[in-house]
Amino acid sequence: MHPSHLTAALLKLLAASLLLISFAMLSRRRTQRLITLFAWQGAVLFMSTLLVAHSAGLRELYYSAALTLLLKVIALPWILHRLIHRLGAQWDSETLVNIPTTMLVGLGLVIFAFGLAHPISRMATTITRNTIGIALAIIFLAFLMMITRRKAVTQVIGFLAMENGLFFAATSATYGMPMVIELGIALDLLVGFFILGIFFFQIREQFDSLDLSNMEALKED
């Protein structure tokens, strides 16, 4: 088998596993499992970036792969674990819509994403062009997770998963963004994450829970 064919097939497999992990995240109720899945998603993303970097021969992509490994597989999951232990929020995360319905909506979103990506992927010239649809689907699914969850922590995990999808879209459509932008995004993500972490404690102090539906009511006093 030709090596580039092998790379393309392997990349498709990794893209499919990313999509699978996204669906698994959509179906999980427990916050702790969500964080584990998020770390796995980061690991698969790291492997796919490494693969694209190797096949395209781009040094910059190796750096962003290393950044992915450090930030999304090791640092963020570790911080999230500590955070939910401190908050005592590891158990329940009630969904607004029941899970089979969410999965059905997710299925519709996947079809929509593939339809949307079809014209783009026909124009692209990279070996990874087939996976643009999957990258878009991952972004949509993360959006869906943010919409259907009630707790602040799970919404933040959805936000991080969405960034994973965006990153994968960037590598699959254009072999990654310039290094400066990538570093900027990584820094933004980290800072945004820290601010949200502080917010968690503020929210809990105000309402005695992390349920965001409390914030919909206006406070009088």
């Binding site: 498709k12 999509l19 699978l20 669906f23 999965m103 059905l104 299925l107 079809i111 593939f114």
Partner: peptide, 20 residues
């Protein structure tokens, strides 16, 4: 719910095959 998920995953597999 568990088995509906299995069904949906299998359908997703078909979709990925057809669309990819």
């Amino acid at each position: 719910e568990y088995l509906a998920m299995a069904f949906l995953l299998a359908v997703l597999g078909l979709l990925v095959h057809l669309l990819l």
